[in-house]
Design a protein around this nucleic acid. Structure first.
Lengths: 192, 192
DNA sequence: TCCATTTGCCTAATCCATTTAGGCAATCCC
DNA sequence: GGGATTGCCTAAATGGATTAGGCAAATGGA
């Protein structure tokens, strides 16, 4: 019989595409195998398990997204950089919902440390360098940015914003302006 | 044979407890059935499907959480109300991680409209009434609060904050202060 | 109290995903 | 070309989801 020419890379790419089409949680070893016209068991020469396959898809998506974010960030600073950063994530999630979901897969500590997740964290801090924050404020801000962007994208994808007439794009811009204003002010500056 | 005395309510409660113990995605018809010492197929007299069971758990958790939030909010306004609101969500997620995950289940439009999700939205707007926002700013703010709180809780649960020494509670407080300051200012007020 | 109805839980069976073991054939390399 | 490797196969076990159909326990009316 002719061989399908499976490799880990081809499985991962096919899995990522499948995720975008039917959802990351619908990516199964069996479904990917069907895509190649091959028996399910055949994939186990290339990946250890279903979890292994999904982890590889997550790592792939993290890399891809980090590259896109890095591109978007090139040559920008301040509010420009902040908006480009935020938009890069949101665009990716809109274009590749399954892959975006994959990036949210919980990785064990060692895998996470060796992943492009590190680059994401670095880029977030790079943006904040354009504002004047010390520690621990910078860490607070990293967490806040991550929370807002991830939260917004995830609620938007879940259809949470479709019950109101207000354009999600306008809310998104308003939120970015808010974050920019907050960071320029150096934080909440608790005063009466 | 003695009957186990299954009812939809008992299944839902057991499912919610199981979710907190092993994770919402590990809640299966089979697992719940085991907890009652009953055959898997027996549950199908009470719930239509695995998806039906999970949806009911989600609705149950949404009600429970809405009640807690309402209690936390009673008699508070301004920053106090904002903090109580935020803490109620975060505490619930910490105490009942599986149920919190359940509240994130995507519901179809009709089910969502008949759920306690409506009360959650109302309470969010009630808090914003303490600030002076018109439309569409109030909607932007609703979306921002939802994004930040959900995003933070979800990143914290995923262990995303365990790589830095900064106390997550401090970041949480800083973020609430930031949101309060932003709302008091009436939004970003794009200037300079 | 007896019988009929309802209903709760069971057995049996099907379908599908995961995973392991072991085998044959295509491919690679000398 | 032939031996070693490796890719994909078949077979089989496990476990969850789901449906069909049956018996027995609870319920309630007479």
């Amino acid at each position: 019989m002719a061989r399908a020419g499976l490799t880990v890379e081809r499985l991962v790419v096919a899995g990522a595409e499948l995720a975008d089409q039917v959802g990351f949680d619908q990516v199964t070893v069996a479904a990917v195998a069907r895509g190649f016209g091959v028996q399910t068991a055949s994939l186990y020469s290339h990946v250890k398990s279903s979890h292994d396959l999904k982890t590889r898809i997550a790592l792939y998506a993290l890399e891809e997204l980090a590259d896109l974010v890095a591109d978007a960030l090139a040559g920008r600073a301040g509010r420009d950089a902040l908006a480009a950063f935020a938009d890069a994530y949101r665009d990716y999630a809109a274009r590749h919902p399954g892959r975006y979901d994959a990036t949210r897969l919980r990785l064990d500590a060692a895998t996470a440390a060796a992943s492009a997740g590190v680059r994401h964290a670095q880029m977030t801090r790079a943006i904040l360098r354009g504002y004047d924050l010390g520690e621990p404020e910078q860490t607070h801000a990293v967490r806040m940015l991550g929370s807002v962007f991830h939260g917004y994208i995830s609620l938007e994808a879940a259809g949470g914003f479709s019950h109101t007439a207000v354009d999600p794009q306008q809310s998104w811009d308003w939120i970015i302006d808010s974050l920019d204003a907050l960071l320029r002010a150096g934080g909440p500056r608790t005063s009466g």
